[in-house]
Design a protein around this nucleic acid. Structure first.
Lengths: 214, 214
DNA sequence: CCTCCAGGTGAGTAAACACTTACTCACCGG
DNA sequence: CCGGTGAGTAAGTGTTTACTCACCTGGAGG
């Protein structure tokens, strides 16, 4: 049936990329143990045997996925720039907005969780390149701002994790547990940033302790 | 070898409980697909066939686990009491300290995540009884305190989720990703509560906008 | 003593699994 | 036109999986 345009056979690299893409979405959807090599082959439109021509084992394919998906990319530059200007709100908004935005791909988060839960070897590396960078960066910035007297004296690492916690938890709820959003992405990000920054900034010396007792 | 005390055969209920306990820890460690019925039987010290005498399928066993582990229990009462006294700090400390404390069992969190990721039917119920109650309760309290003028005007549900987010993220880092704690449990809880409450309480009318530019 | 029956098991079974083997086909340089 | 090569596959391999079934066991009751 020559009705289809005869497309030439993809190169080895293209094939691998196709296999990785197919496998990634399947692993993200059903986990490593929940995905069969047959399914992967079918999704990539090739025979099962070819999968093993490119990757010696299913594990190796999984490792290739994790190794490929480690781009954080341009975000950190933008954060760096705002950090130089000491635009606190923008620093936090950039980070939160990078993860909380319309049409964000849940694949990576699911893959990250699956790999951690299933105790995969590359899980650490994946986590390090994908999340640790964020709160390390953020912790450094918060530390700097504390020294400058702009922020209250808190543990910078704990504070950074707390903020990432807001963001990650939000994604967990919506992308994994399927809780509906009741605010727009912008409003959500803005609320989180506002809440967090308000908790962080130094307030003029004044009463602050709570306990108003009824 | 009759050196062991001859213990009488456990009742049907005890057997089921034993099977559930064995299966729960295995499912938590390796997921539903990663755990075999043979392993479960071995862990419970019985033959594989007996597992199917008690639970018609592996799925049914999994469902029984999720259905059993749904006790939140006495915490909400303590929270309620502190809420009546308007002891904000204690309300938040109780909730955070319930999840962040020495020797907390990671089984439930892992089970919850696995069931959500693997898309299990009972995942919703599990999530609802285990986490939703927390931030529903908390959101109500925050809403009340806002009306009383004690807290700033924020979206109560978003704020509640944000706080639970801190706690859950903390557990994720330490129980799933294996990040070491660098503060004691008490210090951690205290820091989180402090940070969050500070972001929530009403401040006297004053400048608050940021942007101090270097 | 025999019967009964819940509790328990060894030995399966068919399907599904990761992975292999032996092969075809299209293409290309000489 | 030939032989080599890399992409691709149909049809397996042995193993593991969830699940079944015929059978055993030991104590209670007649």
């Amino acid at each position: 049936m020559p009705s289809e345009a005869k497309q030439k056979r993809p190169s080895s690299q293209e094939r691998q990329a196709g296999l990785i893409a197919a496998a990634a979405s399947l692993f993200a959807a059903k986990g490593f143990n929940g995905t069969t090599t047959k399914e992967i082959a079918k999704a990539a439109g090739v025979s099962e045997a070819l999968v093993f021509k490119h990757f010696p084992t299913k594990q190796a394919l999984y490792a290739a996925i994790l190794a490929e998906k480690v781009s954080v990319g341009e975000l950190l530059e933008a954060v760096e720039e705002s950090a130089k200007k000491r635009d606190d709100r923008r620093v936090f908004t950039l980070i939160a907005g990078f993860r909380i935005r319309p049409g964000v791909d849940p694949t990576l988060l699911r893959l990250l969780l699956f790999s951690a839960l299933e105790g995969h070897e590359l899980s650490d590396m994946f986590f390090g390149k994908h999340h640790k960078v964020f709160y390390d960066h953020l912790a450094t910035y918060i530390g700097t701002r504390i020294e400058e007297g702009a922020f209250r004296k808190v543990d910078p690492l704990l504070a950074a994790r707390a903020f990432i916690g807001l963001v990650v938890h939000h994604r967990l709820l919506h992308e994994i547990f399927g809780v509906p959003m009741h605010r727009s992405h912008e409003e959500t990000v803005s609320s989180y940033v506002d809440l967090f920054l308000h908790g962080l900034v130094e307030t003029p010396p004044h009463r602050l302790r709570q306990g108003s007792r009824s």
